[in-house]
Simulated assay, not measured.
Amino acid sequence: MKIEDKIVSSVISGLKALYGQDVPEKMVQVQKTKKEFEGHLTLVVFPFLKMSKKGPEQTAQEIGEYLSANESAVAAFNVIKGFLNLTIASDTWIELLNEIQADKQYGLTEATENSPLVMIEYSSPNTNKPLHLGHVRNNLLGKALANIMAANGNKVVKTNIVNDRGIHICKSMLAWKKYGNGETPESTGKKGDHLVGDYYVAFDKHYKAEIAALMEKGMSKEEAEAASPLMQEAREMLVQWEAGDPEVRALWTMMNNWVYAGFDETYRKMGVDFDKIYYESETYLEGKEKVMEGLEKGFLYRKEDGSVWADLTAEGLDHKLLLRLMVPLCT
């Protein structure tokens, strides 16, 4: 029995003993005690003044004395005007916790055919580096929320949207191709996601060195970034990937599989799982078609470098990049 129910039952008995009156449960108002007062639960005594024919303080005092003498759940009480503040005995809390512990289904509601369908998406990593602390937070919150929703009788689908393509993926691929000397997770003893992440860092290191060298020759930073041979190679690799180049696709598949194996190991250690995984590489063409449609209808605009943007300033936002490169759609 819930503690509140025990108190309500004892108050009803007390009113009968003290004032000879039978009262319905709905007349007994028990609520959490305000934090500025001592106690756990508070009984509102104003509804009982007519039957007690006494003031609120005296009525609360009499009921409090009755409960203290006859209800083991009440360890102490205090009266604040027309409110009776009750302190619940420690043994009662322990008894309640033991009941909860013994009930394996406590608080759980089974889903039915008519239960709401809820999708919860979490993790959403990129396949060019390991999961980081932000992913840990995201994963644990996502799994916890999924568990809570399922425990409340919802049909839950846990999903993960993986960003497995794009210029950032090509950066780690190009760096491995240039500087990797055939390294693999097996040959290095590293988790696959960590190994690929090392090459993403290596790309950035060499890219910055190129920028510095070009700037020493008199270029501005913007000019150097635009002229970087390494970045141009990465962009060309992305174009080749979108064109379905067999060699580039094979490299992409190999390195992504290294990353997935590393991710799976981390997910297992965290106790995180998914019902459905969506890959950007399987959905980006549909998204690109929508971008092209928006461009044709004038909702979007294209810059000189071929990228496509949305102007959201009218909504109080910024300009949003939607498509980096204007390359033919793959079929």
Rank of each mutant, 00 (worst) to 15 (best):
S72Q: 12
A226R: 14
N160Q: 11
N126G: 07
P116H: 03
S9R: 14
L312D: 05
G55P: 12
K171V: 08
N181Y: 12
I148V: 14
I161C: 01
D305E: 13
K35Y: 06
D264V: 08
A213E: 15
S281L: 05
I148M: 13
K288D: 02
G244S: 09
V291A: 07
A69K: 15
N163A: 14
Y122Q: 02
T112Y: 06
K50Y: 00
M119H: 09
V11G: 07
L15H: 05
F299T: 10
G262E: 07
Q232G: 06
K178S: 09
E282G: 05
S72D: 15
K190M: 13
S123V: 15
L317F: 11
M254C: 11
D5C: 00
E304C: 11
G316F: 08
K171H: 04
Q232W: 05
D273V: 07
S68Y: 13
K35A: 10
A75G: 03
K155C: 06
G182Q: 06
G82D: 12
T253N: 13
K50L: 02
N128L: 02
D204A: 05
A144Q: 00
P229Q: 07
P229H: 12
S115F: 04
W258P: 06
K34T: 00
G294P: 10
A202M: 13
Y260Q: 01
V30T: 02
T253G: 01
S90I: 06
Y279M: 10
L321M: 15
K53Q: 15
G153D: 08
Q31I: 10
Y19M: 03
W252R: 01
P56G: 08
L97K: 08
K320C: 08
N152H: 14
D91M: 03
V8K: 14
I120Q: 05
D22M: 01
V259L: 04
A60H: 03
Y200D: 10
I211R: 01
N256G: 07
V201P: 00
D5W: 06
Q31L: 12
G316L: 12
S123N: 15
D193Y: 07
I12W: 03
T188Y: 12
L323V: 02
E25D: 14
L195M: 09
F46K: 03
P229D: 11
W252E: 05
Y179A: 03
G20V: 03
H319C: 05
E223S: 04
S9Y: 09
K288E: 10
D5E: 14
L96T: 04
